[in-house]
Write a protein that binds this DNA or RNA. Structure first.
Lengths: 147, 147
DNA sequence: TATTGTTATACTCTATAACTATA
DNA sequence: TATAGTTATAGAGTATAACAATA
């Protein structure tokens, strides 16, 4: 590694160093997912439905920053593959609600398992001191990601 | 943050915590770029040309994991926007070389500036101790991203 | 009349196959 | 004959506009 360590003293330098590493790590993590041939939007949609338990197509379009017609097609594809199911809305017959199927839940679980297994393998290559430093940093990165 | 801190003791727990934060941070960072309306491939292509100074379309296609015809179109688009320039290869007249223009260099610089400025603003919200922990972690994340 | 979701249609991005120029 | 790049064409994904059903 030839990063300019002295720059880390400034916030700008720290931001710069973090940005590069975050981008690179993420690029590599994204390649470690299971080979289910889902697009990023499809995967993100499944994850959104999972975390909200039940959502309408309109809510999903808003959440994923796509237009409603696009979400209609994403949902159709995911339903076709048995990863989520549509049900009539309990009170408003114009609306529809969407939930994960067991297969959808399992796919998300497997996706995460693969990525975390890869990352855990990489962590094994570090020294115990380095891992300790990351254990300290992890909750801070978590906070940073939610600000 | 309600992450299960106790799990951080295991490598799997650390991997899990890092994966979530990395994905979230990256998603937010990607939105902070300049509004130049370039696709991810176009942006990555510019960055690749920058870091190699000069590349052929074939090398770029290989590097960005796209097929040569796709790279032809990416290059055409970028050239049309004045971000890179094609020149005949010095020895092999079948080949072409591609270099960044000043506008291309400037665009990449601005793109990074925006993202790093956003990240630096977030870092300012942390305590000095938290920033210190990230300064320790940054070179380790850099190493991790390159393994 | 307003809102939710869908269908119809067009545009962008990338792929495969076929073609041109050069080695 | 092989290779680098391009052009022709098709497939996937998302957008806007128009439409149907319900509130």
């Amino acid at each position: 590694m030839l990063t300019k360590t002295e720059n880390l003293r400034s916030d700008a330098g720290l931001a710069s160093a973090l940005r590069v590493s975050l981008a690179r790590l993420n690029r590599r993590l994204r390649k470690q997912g299971a080979h289910h041939s889902l697009t990023p939007t499809q995967l993100a949609t499944l994850a959104a439905v999972e975390s909200h338990t039940e959502m309408t197509p309109g809510e999903l379009a808003e959440h994923e920053k796509v237009q409603p017609p696009s979400m209609t097609r994403v949902i159709a594809k995911l339903e076709e593959r048995g990863l989520l199911a549509r049900k009539p809305h309990p009170t408003d017959r114009r609306q529809v609600t969407v939930r994960l199927t067991e297969a959808g839940t399992a796919l998300l679980k497997e996706e995460r398992r693969m990525k975390e297994a890869w990352l855990a393998r990489q962590l094994k290559e570090l020294t115990p001191e380095e891992r300790a430093a990351l254990r300290v940093a992890a909750p801070i990165l978590a906070r940073l990601s939610q600000m």
